[in-house]
Design a protein around this nucleic acid. Structure first.
Length: 231
DNA sequence: TCATTAAATTGTT
DNA sequence: AACAATTTAATGA
């Protein structure tokens, strides 16, 4: 039905199809391809840890991540989910500071890791890469502003809507079809809402025509509508 | 290809 | 959190 027929993308395939690599020269692309590595992560394991030095720029080849920040009080704030095709960590790399959030694999995930050195080299050599980063940073900023609002002001259904809408962000996660294989339990982890409540919200959103729920995944029918629920 | 079984996910309380 | 119902995936004839 969904992308189960899709063969597992290779590391280099993921790099070449990434939107930031399209404008690179052969030389630049070659440098990226010779330094990027792949790593697997089991469900629940930490891809990157808050407080540690930032050594890589991360891309999701396959799987699903949650970026979250655990306060010392024990409260955990989920920042965003990252589906396949998403790259993150550029903010911390640019500022050369320690990482400010955890990256947790919600299921078996394959990650592409671009060394910091390569990332900075691209920054110095490729105009199109810089342009990509601008749009990426801008888009993410908009997401976080919406996130702040939704955490405080919106009801649970709208928070679920926002979470789903961010997963389908065409700028940050291009090439994603309107279908995404994400279980209701995983959405619960992403939103910090119980699976039961997510189930209820999804049904409401489905009845309202924004999306359709199916076994093991959802299909977006009205992305703009979902966004507006959160604004 | 089809039937059976196990595992994952959903729907409900 | 627990439970039943449903869907998928795996297995073997």
């Amino acid at each position: 039905m969904d992308n189960s027929n899709t063969k597992s993308p290779s590391l280099l395939g993921a790099v070449r199809s990434a939107s930031w690599s399209i404008g690179l020269t052969q030389e630049e692309l070659a440098r990226v391809e010779s330094t990027v590595i792949e790593r697997r992560f089991a469900p629940g394991s930490l891809v990157c840890r808050k407080g540690e030095p930032v050594e890589y720029w991360y891309g999701v080849i396959e799987g699903l991540l949650k970026l979250s920040s655990d306060a010392e009080s024990g409260k955990t704030a989920s920042l965003t989910g990252v589906p396949p095709g998403g790259w993150f960590g550029e903010g911390s790399l640019l500022k050369s500071e320690i990482r400010r959030y955890d990256g947790v694999a919600l299921r078996d995930s394959r990650m592409a890791l671009m060394p910091r050195q390569t990332f900075l080299w691209l920054l110095d050599h490729s105009i199109s890469f810089n342009r990509y980063l601008l749009t990426q940073l801008n888009e993410r900023l908009g997401q976080f502003i919406c996130l702040l609002e939704s955490e405080r002001l919106l009801d649970t259904d709208a928070r679920v809507a926002r979470c789903v809408a961010t997963l389908f962000n065409p700028v940050l996660y291009p090439g994603l079809s309107r279908k995404l294989a994400v279980s209701q339990e995983e959405l619960g982890y992403l939103t910090g809402i119980s699976r039961q409540r997510v189930n209820r919200s999804l049904k409401i959103l489905q009845d309202a025509g924004y999306l359709s729920v199916a076994y093991g995944g959802i299909t977006i029918l009205n992305l703009d509508g979902l966004r507006k629920l959160g604004s």
